[in-house]
Design a binder for these strands. Sequence first.
DNA 1: AAGTGGTCTAGACCACCAG
DNA 2: TGGTGGTCTAGACCACTTC
Lengths: 237, 237
Amino acid sequence: MKTKYKTIYDDTKTKILDGTYLPGNQLPDEIAVCEQYNCSRMTVKKAYDMLVQEGYIYRKQGLGSFVLAKSMDQGEVELQERELQGFTRTAKGHADTKLLHFRLIFAPKDIADHLGIRENDPLYDILRVRNIDGQPYVLEHTYMSPETIPGITEDILTHSVYTYIEEVLGKKIASAQKTTRAQVSNSQDQKELGLRPEEPVLEVEQIAYLDNGTPFEYSISRHRYDKFKLSVYSVRR
Amino acid sequence: MKTKYKTIYDDTKTKILDGTYLPGNQLPDEIAVCEQYNCSRMTVKKAYDMLVQEGYIYRKQGLGSFVLAKSMDQGEVELQERELQGFTRTAKGHADTKLLHFRLIFAPKDIADHLGIRENDPLYDILRVRNIDGQPYVLEHTYMSPETIPGITEDILTHSVYTYIEEVLGKKIASAQKTTRAQVSNSQDQKELGLRPEEPVLEVEQIAYLDNGTPFEYSISRHRYDKFKLSVYSVRR
DNA sequence: AAGTGGTCTAGACCACCAG
DNA sequence: TGGTGGTCTAGACCACTTC
């Protein structure tokens, strides 16, 4: 059974996206929505507040709730990642993966610290190139502990590790911390991503967590500079 | 008067940051906090949920609330920007600004669209270099409408525009949409930021909003690749 | 069974903004 | 003054986890 706040959230978001509510339009006030959905104000507030966090609407005490002018261009690049208090990845074409290596190594101290394991514990060391429509766009170096994520195979790595974790292992991926910077490309980047020496990469360092708080993945992704962008919406409070 | 949920949020966050609660520790359950602060469960939940969004804790139904192992390194670079559903900028040294130009122009169509004004309306066109401890780290190209933000002067631009907007104009900055990518540096970047031709920049495109939904600033910032990183924590839901 | 968080109610009072 | 959202209550019932 879907929750009431999720129903109101989904319905309202749909109406914003399909143009039923246009930028600048005032949304129905909380009381009106209460009556429509037969619920209490707190429930409406929760739904509307989620839309505020994601940049769809803004609200002002004494005035009302309004659709925000969404104005950043989308879609010049092949892969767009949007952090809207959730994970959304939009690839435009057909994706596939080339596995460069898949090894077991002794965990170095820094990575062991990130993953909450001991130095020299066994560690999966995975290097992959991701392609969209046959064109490489990111070189992904991934480390996972076999204790946390057992049973990784080449087949899983060329498809979706996340699907394996959630559907086969039955664990839930809950959150991720990412840090982004620009970097000069090295010879491996240039070879695998087809870059010229003066062309840079966008590096994303990530630690991903399960819903029990365990960090299960540490990764460094080096993206082609012209095929990836990261979007963030942040609300002050 | 500070709200109750903010008090609980601040107190708990402080205890996490100062080590009173260590990574992995269980936090007091909602009922216990209710009794301590003489409040209802909803109030505690609001405070704890904010800490979840910001990556300080995780919660699990049936189990409890726990401090998350925060594991991403901070502090190798001069400027760190962290989006924790709020704006946090951490500069390590003394900051100052060099104004390269400050003009009025006719708004080009694309920028006019971002700012919700008409093409050819007057527009401030501002180009600045920001230094920390005398070293340049970012070239900031900023556009604002004089209709929304009147009275900009050179003096304001070399100090804080945000302070001027909030304290002199009495308007509230509410949110911002940012998109980040890596770019090859151009000759202006190289000259102003002291980069060699093969060194890239991290470009951040931003639209910032007032609390009445008006977009008041469109900017493109080009950061030295080795002096800036952007961190994001995202929770799935 | 006991303990935890997740959702939800049906109100209350207050702060803010418009006319 | 009327309408809006912000905070808060004092419960309720349910879902999930561990024992």
